[in-house]
Design a protein around this nucleic acid. Structure first.
Lengths: 198, 198
DNA sequence: TCACTAACGCGAATTATTTGCTTTTATCTG
DNA sequence: CAGATAAAAGCAAATAATTCGCGTTAGTGA
């Protein structure tokens, strides 16, 4: 039947999400997220409070408290949803170049003031669900590059090796040390690639 | 002159510390830190508030607000001061074993509930001074091991390699992924050591 | 269309935070 | 070893954030 009038496709689609994702609830979530992003961009972090966010989102503070609990959790939620990459790693000539380009961009994004802060926000919450999400996003990106290499028959590190020897050092430096330079990132890539002229 | 009665040696010693570290100020700091540790150990994290800490430390809340600003900064301060190792890495037979033993213990400590939480506390604050402290502590430990290897003339990775390929992957997993197993840590150590029977 | 209820809004009660002022006491000077 | 000085602590009132009970709105399923 063509005009099936599907009566419950969305019920299935979102079955694992919030029990009542329709209309208003979704609007509130969007408005609150947007308000947080705007305020984070335009003012001192310490001045961002839940009452202010609520005002800007045209929502009652108690709504935010009931849905998110406290500011930290809200910030972590917003940060995690922005750490999700929206595009695949760009294709270059080779898998190796794909990796290098991806790693440099990853390091750049995460090193920026906004990126660093988002990571901190995600990690600040004791429930590590958001942190794991970030890890999974990264792995998804890398899996694409690994798959391309396989298709072409190029020798390539495993996903685990990439996480351990490229992603981890970048993230450690961003969090604990000074931000990684492009040269540093290129060095990490060289280290995990099978011998090559470089 | 022997009984020099040095009148300002301590002024020099602590010149980079708080401007007034003597007596009362130090007592307050100790009492507050102790109160935080006790409460963190014995109750739900979400129930730890500054007024409660103040009560337990026999101090006025405003004292804490004035010195530390907010709960996050206080927790970060307490966590950082406990992340400082108090002993040198234990000596085993070889530098390689020193490294392996140290890495396993490091991973264990940091993976524990308390350890993870301390790291999160340290990272949660935007001023990254505490985070850098942690990094420096780790490097100090590793430098001892590297120096021992040099003394004995053993081939050994550089400090940078150890940070990038042993410490970073451990920390990444603790923060974003599942906690590293002992086998995993041993694998990391094998990877950075010059070819060996393993 | 109607019943049902999750999620929101409202406002009062509670709790945390800020702030101006006073008091204590570490540190410096003579 | 007295003062003198001022940093840090205490106190309490004012402000702001958070919680909570209860009534209302509006997705959802029949």
């Amino acid at each position: 039947m063509i005009g099936d009038k599907g009566k419950d496709w969305h019920k299935v689609m979102v079955s694992k999400e919030n029990p009542r994702p329709g209309g208003r609830s979704a609007r509130v979530q969007a408005a609150v997220h947007q308000a947080v992003r705007d305020m984070l961009a335009g003012m001192n972090r310490a001045d961002v409070t839940i009452p202010l966010i609520a005002q800007r989102a045209n929502v009652t503070p108690s709504t935010i408290y009931r849905r998110w609990g406290d500011l930290q959790e809200l910030l972590a939620d917003v940060a995690a949803s922005h750490l999700q990459p929206e595009t695949e790693p760009p294709k270059t000539g080779s898998a190796r170049n794909d990796l290098q380009a991806w790693a440099e961009q990853y390091a750049d994004e995460m090193s920026s003031g906004a990126g660093r802060q988002m990571i901190r926000d995600v990690l600040a919450v004791s429930d590590s669900a958001n942190a794991e999400k970030c890890c999974i996003y990264t792995q998804q990106q890398l899996r694409v590059i690994v798959a391309r290499a396989q298709e072409r028959g190029e020798a390539f590190p495993t996903l685990t090796e990439l996480m351990d020897y490229v992603v981890s050092p970048i993230m450690y430096r961003i969090l604990f040390d000074q931000v990684p330079s492009n040269d540093y990132v290129r060095g990490l890539v060289s280290r995990v690639m099978p011998e090559k002229t470089d």
